[in-house]
Design a protein around this nucleic acid. Structure first.
Lengths: 224, 224
DNA sequence: AAACAGTACGAACGGTCGTATTATTTGTTT
DNA sequence: AAACAAATAATACGACCGTTCGTACTGTTT
């Protein structure tokens, strides 16, 4: 089988990318059910059936949007953190990156997964299952990273990593939610950063690095 | 002006209540935009125009649903807590009641406000404004209650009550979200309860009551 | 050159949406 | 008993939904 990408496929993939880029932004603001083929087609100046042909069904469009959002999320939150050595430093990068990813509105409606998970957590189907997998991947990454930090002696030996992952999740998601609801790009992120730093500071061993102390308290709010 | 409630008005208010009770459940599962007049009419065996006549517009139906949900929320979470004396005991009741309200599925889709706030936090309009007010009322109640506890000497004098309110909000909302996503009525609430108890225990003064210590760790998971 | 495959189009389908208008039933008031 | 008003119903409207279909164009494969 030849996987040669011919011109048609290239052209098609370009439109596909365009559609998905718009789709994830809409979904992050209004949810995946508000994604409509007609609306996407009108906004992007292509035909409704053209959009449809790319995905085959609305559910497939939604699933493709989740995959696209996962890639963007990984690029902005995970990738860079994995380049720093395991330990509490990496754990902090994951938290700080996720706060920045929300604050910088990588998706126009804030965290894509916050919006669409709240939307689908009571609806059965493949979209929900995809979101459950994404949530597990993130939670497991936090747990593993915290586990690493503990084994490196950077976190107290009796650290409850599952509890810590819950707290990280709670603080970061709540910062995202409050920022959107209050239309405030500062307070919620500063508060969440403080809560996270206090929690990690209490768990960290005396010899552990404390990257959260190296930055001013409003590091998360400064423009780039 | 005579406010005499005649039979028709009585009957009308009954229907209105029936519609709203179903509406808040639907909204807690699928959001306020998924509320449709036709669907409500079909499920409740009344005419679509009959439903419409009660509210006048979809937005008014959504606003009425938010008000109805606020009353139910107050009845289940706030009222009983206000009957215990101010202080850390009342603060704990508020947290515990909100966890129970979510866990017991007072609304079939978990916390009404979690779902619809996530849905509307990026959409301008009166519904969003109503949700902002509801969120502020809850946050202010937590802050005031924590403030009371501090002035009573039950919380450390340097307690950051705004930060504490953020943490309470984060833990409770995340328990609700994870319970729905993971379809797990136990773990998320036990975890949240532990996180809350640890936080309050760290802030409480030595002489303060510690109601969270009086119950077993799985108190929140026991059936009634 | 012929057969094929992918992209995009326009038109149409049945369905549901919110809304408006008009009619009917029914309890209250005089 | 007649007049009235409120609750509910019936019907219709235009808009948009996801989907299907037939078709045209175009680049790839053989």
């Amino acid at each position: 089988m030849t996987t040669s990408t011919d011109g048609r496929i290239l052209r098609g993939e370009q439109t596909r990318r365009t559609v998905l880029r718009r789709a994830v932004d809409i979904a992050s603001e209004e949810g995946l059910e508000s994604l409509s083929l007609g609306r996407l087609a009108k906004e992007l100046q292509i035909s409704k059936s053209g959009v449809f042909a790319h995905f085959g069904s609305k559910e497939e469009l939604q699933l493709a949007a989740v995959r696209a959002a996962s890639r963007i999320y990984h690029d902005h939150v995970v990738r860079e953190a994995m380049e720093v050595p395991p330990g509490v430093g990496r754990l902090w990068r994951l938290c700080a990156n996720k706060l920045a990813y929300s604050r910088e509105r990588v998706f126009s409606g804030g965290c894509f997964f916050y919006t669409v998970t709240a939307e689908f957590e009571s609806r059965p189907g493949r979209v929900r299952e995809a979101l459950v997998r994404a949530q597990h991947a993130w939670r497991d990454l936090i747990v593993r990273t915290a586990e690493d930090a503990r084994q490196l002696g950077e976190l107290s030996q009796d650290t409850d990593t599952a509890l810590l992952a819950f707290e990280v999740h709670a603080f970061v998601d709540t910062a995202n939610a409050l920022s959107l609801l209050e239309d405030d790009l500062t307070t919620p992120y500063v508060t969440a950063r403080g809560a996270l730093a206090a929690r990690l500071d209490a768990l960290a061993t005396p010899s552990a690095p404390r990257p959260w102390a190296d930055e001013p308290d409003d590091a998360v709010t400064r423009p780039d």
